[in-house]
Design a protein around this nucleic acid. Sequence first.
RNA 1: GCUCCAGUAGCUCAGGGGAUAGAGCAUUGGUUUCCUAAACCAAGUGCCGCAGGUUCGAAUCCUGCCUGGAGCGCCA
Length: 593
Amino acid sequence: MVKAQLPDFNARIRQHIVEVHIKKAIKRAQDAGDLPKFEIPDIPMIQPRLKIHGDLSFPAMRLAKFAKQNPLDIARVVEKMLPETPLIKKTETVPPGFTNFFLDTSHFKSVFDRNRERRIHEIISDDFSVLKLDIGAYKKAQVEFVSANPSGPITIGHTRGAVVGDAMARLLEAAGYQVQREYYYNNAGNQMVVLGKSLRLRYLQQLGEDLDFPADYYQGEYLVDAAAQLAAEHGASLRTRDWGYFKDAAEERMFEWINRSLASIDIKHDEFFNETSLFESGRIWRTLAAMRDNGHIYESAHWEGAEADEVADVAAKRYEPATWFRSSAFGDEKDRVMVKSDGAPTYTLPDIAYHSDKLERGFDIAVNVLGTDHFTQAQVVKYGLQALGMDPAPIHVIFVQMVRAVRWNEARGEYEAVKQSKRAGDFDTLDHLVEMTSADAVRYHMLARSPNSQLDFDVDQVVKQSNENPVYYIQNAYVRCASILRHAEARGLDDSNANLSLLGDDERFFIDKALYEIYDAIRESVATFEPHHIAFCADELAEIFHPIYERVRVLHSDVPEDLAKARLRFYRASKAIFRYVLQLMGMSAPERM
RNA sequence: GCUCCAGUAGCUCAGGGGAUAGAGCAUUGGUUUCCUAAACCAAGUGCCGCAGGUUCGAAUCCUGCCUGGAGCGCCA
C-alpha cells in the first residue's frame, strides 16, 4: 500500500520534528558507542493522556529489543544526545523508559501561525480540499451496499448496512477516490415468484375470496395494503392475471418504497444493477462455461468429497445430477451447487457472474457491505472469481453484524427484541425508526460503532435521548457557530481582514487538532474499512469545542473589535469544520435547533 | 462438530502492546447582565468473561475454556 503524503498540519509538523530529532539522537549515540549499531526503526510518538507527561512522549522500550539494554538507560542516552532545538522546551526521562517532551512553540509561532492562517482561509473559502487525502487520487472505488431483496421494506438490519456503506462511500470520496454507489438488485429467482404469488393471493382476498395464505409466502401487512390499492384502482379486472403481472406490480412498488426510505436518510445510489440483466445478457451461462473450461465444474448427484452418510442422504432424495463448482479446490470446505437438478441456477452463480462483471469494470477498490449471514456466500464468490482466473483482491467485504431493535422490559428486567410489527408504532423498519427518532439519530447511532460488533438498538433510549445525545451535541457545535455569525452579520462585523495572530491558545489548538484528527479519521476509516472512526472523531471535536465556546466570546461588550474579528474568523472556520464532519457522516447541519 | 464475530462502568459502546482504561446515557452537586444551558464546571463508578503463555510491559498478541450471536442448504 502506498503511503500517503502527510499534510503539513501543525500537529503533524510538531510530531515530525521531534521524531527526526530522536532519530538523530539515536544515531549520535550509536556513533559515540553508547548504543549498539542497529537499523533505527520508526517509533511513533505517543500523545500522553496526562499533561504532566508533556506534549509528546517517546517510548524507548521499543528499542530495548534492538539495543539489548534496559529501556530506561536507552531513554537517558537518547535524551542526552538530543540536538538543540528551540521547539523542545524541556525533556524528562521517567521509568519504565519514556522520554517526555515539553514543547515551546513560541519560537515556531510565526511559522505555525502562518500555516494555520492559510488553513483557516482554505477551510472557509475552499470547501475542504485541505482535508482531501491523496491516497485515492486517480483511483476508482465502488461501494455496493443495501442490495436488499425487493420483496419488502428496508428493515433495521438493512439500515445498518446502508449507513455503513454510505459513510464508507463518503469517506472514500474524502480520501480522493472517485466513488460509485451501487445497489445489486435481486430481481431474479424464486423469491420474486413467491412475491408475485403472494400479492396475487392478497388481491384475491381483497376481492372477497376465502383463500389460505401459505406460511412460506410473504406475510407482511404491506402486501395487503398494496393489494387493497390494486383492488381500489382496478376493481376485479385483474382477477385473471397470473403471478407475473403481480410480480411486476409488487416489484415496482417495492423499488419505489425502498428508494424513498433510503432517501429519507440521505442515501442515493448511482447504479442499480439488475440481477435479471445477467440472465438477459447470457452472462450467467458464459460465466458457468468459463468455469467449466477451466476445469472447475462437474455434474453429479452429490459433491465429490461427500461422506458416505451424506451420499446416502442425497440418494434417498433421488436427486437428478446437479452442476457443481469444485470450490473445495480453492479452500472451501465443500463444493457448491451452481445449477440445481431442475435446471435453475442457485443464487451463487449469478452472484459470481455479477462480481466478475464488477471486476471487469476496473475498480481499484470494490467495497461490499454485507450482513454476516452472507459470510460463506462471499467466500464462495471469491473462489468463483478465482475459478474464472480473476484476481478478487480489489473486493473488500465489510461484514456488519446483526442489529436488533430492543426495548427494556421492566417486568422481566431484561431487554427483549422488538416484535416484527405489522403496523406503525414499532421499529422494525427504517421508516418507523426515522419516524420515531430522526434521520440524523438513525445515521449517527448506526454509524458510531465498529461494524463487527453486534448492535442492540435500544429504541426507547434513542427516542428519549433525542434531546440529549451525541447527535445534537455535535450539531449544536455547528449551530453555535452559525448563531454567532448571524449576530455578527447583523452588527456589520467584518472578519475578512481579521488579524489571526490575536487568537488564543484554545482557538489555535482547536484548529490544529481538528485538521489532524479529521485527516486521521478519514485515513484510518479507509485503511481499515471501518467508517465508525469518523463518528468518534466528530464527538471528540465537539467535546473540545464546547468549552472553548464558553470561554471565547466574540460579541460581548468587553471584547475589543480586533479581537472580535479574529474570533469571528475562528468560528467561521469551526462552522465549516463541523459542517464537513457532519456531511461525512451523512448528517444534516442545521442553522438553528 | 467446524468457521467467523463479540464479551470493557448500572445501560449502550469506544480503545486493540505503553504510564492512573475512556465517552454518552443514568446518578450527585454547582454555573446564566450580553453570541441558544440541546452547554459548561465538579464528583463517584471497573477481577477489561475465566485460566495459562509470550513480553521490560497485556484490556490489547497466542493457546485453551465459558457465554452470546452469525454461518456451515440442490434457500435467497
